[in-house]
Write a protein that binds this DNA or RNA. Structure first.
Lengths: 335, 335
DNA sequence: TTGTACGCGTTATCAT
DNA sequence: ATGATAACGCGTACAA
């Protein structure tokens, strides 16, 4: 319940003895103001504590400078890292990030996009979930740009940036084979997002090509606890796997801890493990996990660069697929 | 460069065959509209994909609904957890979070606050760094509320929420003493933020009262790597400590890993360790760290509840101090 | 209950 | 280069 206390351009104009327009021009890059008026305006603004009202500016320019970041599980290491990169690069580009936390509930992403529309965000970046087709259409009609990261949607319009999960899966299979592993396993969550599916398929297919079978087990969300449960299930099999590809690093950490503590297995001598995401914990001494780094910086750069373009092709921009970088540590034999 | 594509209330009014005010009233809770016009407006709005422009609404009401979250090191587990809680509760309160990432550079927080002012944020929550006094004054004059979390500033006006670090430090000392430890150490970063200082002082003072001396070592930032370095320094002393209080869990993880791998020490039999923050990793099997949980949910609740009050006392609200909760795991003997 | 008219703080346009 | 004026989309006082 704030009553009008912010300083307006009008007041600055009065104090500087110029017109409102002069004030506006002073704060509009590339406008023509004489050095003198400019100084007087700046002085008055400084004294009064004036700052351009971006709400009003956005109203006029039809460009708010706001970019909406739509994410679930913000506190997860990988998500937090993406968030950091996006907000940082957004700020460097002169934009500002609006953060909306979604849950797994139905329509959560749709509600977030409505919020983005209400604030006339210039763009929305979707990192979790998948919006309804109708909402996507609404956003595009409204001139709001959309970026889908690792969402693997097929409708045209949004910029789609994906990491090459299948390739990563395939490379893990090869590495396991080279390490002399024979009984492969894939530890996945029940989430069933496109990226996880591709990771699994790429791994299974490559293993088959190498003449190796894969046991696939799925459980819970992509967290540490799920990794423990999956270890329980996979390592009690009569034919115990000697190599496990975990769908995420978080899963891998839980899996490794359970494998060592509860089953007394040594990594990598008795069990090879690979993960995905290259979260900070993967490099910790307790894990030294061989994993794949998503090119988070490049993903963010592609997204933000596109926001600056006028590229308004009919069917939207071409989808982008980026390779994941293999980070070799010591959870797989050889190397 | 979006040209006016968003649907306006005017267009909805035309389609519904009513005045523009009727549309406005339909979307203003508590306004008087007949059930019939209301229905017609809602129908037209639905068909057109209309959503209230919060930029314009904010301009009118002098209340943007935006709350600015000012943080550095967003990707850090503790910070990410706070962020999650704040955004979630903010959304439940009908507000929206604007996220600004600061670095350690000078004036970084000040720039963030200027951004908050430009977007006419109703409030700013500062989780890192400390703003200049003049900026704080400007915010308050402008009617923008300020919340400082664990910042320990003394100027009146902002809501100050702090965790009782000294008490936590004191309780660790007691626990160590009870475990029969004699040579205590405190592993801190060079950051020197008020909370870290209080944590250290509380620990040292309580240890002194118990007749125990404390070796204090400081290095780097509050991260995993610093923990490793601090272990190197503390565990190579002639009088090797048998108990270490690490300023943060992240430090503690690095410390424990180094202690076990490089010095072959067993926790807690040969070395007791305590941390702070209760990050997710503290509960992992590799650490099982005894630590303190900051009441993140309550902190967020206090902050957001205050934003809803009209409380405009002269010197601002009373500072709030919340206790940290001791989470007992197995990195300290006994229990 | 409904519509008209005005103001919120900007920027853009158009004279000067 | 400068100032007056219109418009952006909305809420609301006021009159009907």
């Amino acid at each position: 319940m704030a009553s009008k206390l912010f300083v307006s351009a009008q007041e600055v104009a009065r104090r500087a003895g110029v017109s409102r327009s002069a004030v506006s021009r002073t704060f509009t890059p590339g406008a023509s103001v004489s050095a003198e008026t400019r100084q007087r305006v700046l002085k008055a603004a400084e004294e009064l504590g004036y700052h351009v009202n971006h709400l009003a500016r956005g109203l006029m320019r039809n460009e708010s400078g706001i970019v909406c970041l739509i994410v679930s599980d913000v506190a997860t290491p990988y998500r937090a890292a993406v968030l950091r990169e996006l907000t940082l690069q957004l700020q460097n580009a002169g934009k500002v990030a609006m953060l909306i936390n979604t849950d797994r509930s139905d329509g959560s992403v749709d509600r977030a996009l409505h919020q983005a529309i209400r604030y006339r965000a210039d763009a929305s970046v979707i990192l979790s979930g998948l919006p309804d087709k109708s909402i996507v259409q609404l956003c595009l009609r409204s001139g709001q740009r959309l970026v889908l990261i690792n969402r693997d949607d097929d409708q045209p319009g949004p910029l789609r940036i994906n990491v090459d999960d299948a390739d990563a899966g395939s490379r893990v299979a090869t590495a396991f084979a080279r390490a002399g592993c024979r009984r492969l396993a894939f530890a996945n969550s029940l989430a069933g997002t496109p990226s996880l599916v591709r990771r699994e398929k790429g791994f299974v297919a490559a293993a088959a090509a190498l003449g190796l079978e894969v046991v696939v087990e799925r459980y819970g969300a992509t967290g540490y606890e799920a990794g423990q449960v999956l270890a329980q299930r996979l390592l009690t099999r009569s034919e115990r796997p000697d190599a496990v590809f975990c769908a995420t690093d978080l899963l891998a950490c839980g899996f490794m801890d359970a494998a060592r503590r509860q089953f007394g297995l040594a990594v990598p001598s008795q069990l090879c493990v690979a993960g995905f995401d290259n979260i900070e914990q993967a490099s910790w001494l307790s894990y030294e996990l061989t994993t794949f780094a998503q090119p988070v910086d490049r993903i963010a750069k592609y997204a933000i660069d596109w926001l600056g373009t006028d590229d308004n092709g009919e069917d939207g921009p071409e989808p982008i697929t980026l390779p994941a970088e293999l980070i070799w540590r010591s959870s797989i034999r050889g190397g």
